[in-house]
């Protein structure tokens, strides 16, 4: 097994993880600036590094990336010490486990758009279920159509952007070649 500090194209795995985490936080900050017309709804662009690196990073590295995203987003949004953090964590980790599972199950028959759509769907269902249990009771199902509908649209957008970056970025191609053969 290679050391996390081993350099790949001048970048160690650990530094790459830090770089991707920083990109995720930057995107979370951009997302924070955008107006939210309805509660619960997010654009989800801070998930792009997670979707993009699904086939490249090891699963435990993806878990670290997801954890940094949840904590950093909480810090940026001012929700670090509130129940919102629980929702964010449940949504993010449900999406990550689902995306990793469908990637293993379907392989390349699924594009990153499909992978991201699966992540968005299960993340939203988990958050809706959590809302029923601890927040709004049965009323939570009322907001289901809006959450699932907009979640599907943003999931599509995130997958589309990740797929576009994956197919065009020379940097990504180099990093993938180095890390996957590592």
């Amino acid at each position: 097994m290679s050391s996390p500090n081993k350099e790949i194209h001048g970048v160690s795995r650990r530094r790459l993880l830090a770089f991707l985490s920083a990109i995720g936080l930057f995107l979370a900050a951009i997302e924070y600036l955008l107006p939210k017309p309805v509660p619960f709804i997010r654009l989800g662009i801070s998930n792009i590094p997670l979707v993009l690196m699904l086939d490249v990073l090891r699963f435990r590295e993806l878990l670290v990336l997801a954890a940094v995203k949840v904590l950093g987003q909480g810090l940026i949004n001012g929700t670090l010490v509130s129940y919102v953090l629980l929702f964010s964590a449940v949504g993010t980790f449900t999406a990550l486990f689902t995306m990793a599972a469908v990637r293993r199950l379907f392989g390349l028959r699924l594009s990153l758009i499909g992978v991201s759509l699966w992540g968005a769907l299960t993340s939203n269902l988990a958050q809706l279920g959590l809302s029923v249990l601890i927040l709004l009771g049965e009323n939570a199902w009322v907001i289901g159509p809006v959450i699932l509908g907009t979640g599907g649209a943003t999931g599509f957008l995130v997958g589309w952007l990740a797929q576009m970056f994956q197919s065009r970025s020379v940097w990504f191609r180099e990093v993938r070649r180095a890390l996957v053969s590592d």
């Binding site: 379907f106 028959r109 699924l110 594009s111 990153l112 758009i113 499909g114 759509l117 699966w118 968005a120 769907l121 269902l125 199902w141 009322v142 289901g144 159509p145 699932l148 509908g149 979640g151 599907g152 999931g155 599509f156 589309w160 797929q163 576009m164 197919s167 065009r168």
Partner: peptide, 28 residues
């Protein structure tokens, strides 16, 4: 313009989302 395209299997989560959202809306 080489834009990303969906694959056939991508339609499964898309259809599931539409069915679930539509079902909840209908129940409401």
């Amino acid at each position: 313009l080489n834009l990303p395209r969906m694959k056939g299997w991508d339609l499964i989560p898309l259809l599931l989302t539409l069915v679930l959202a539509g079902g909840l809306a209908w129940m409401g």
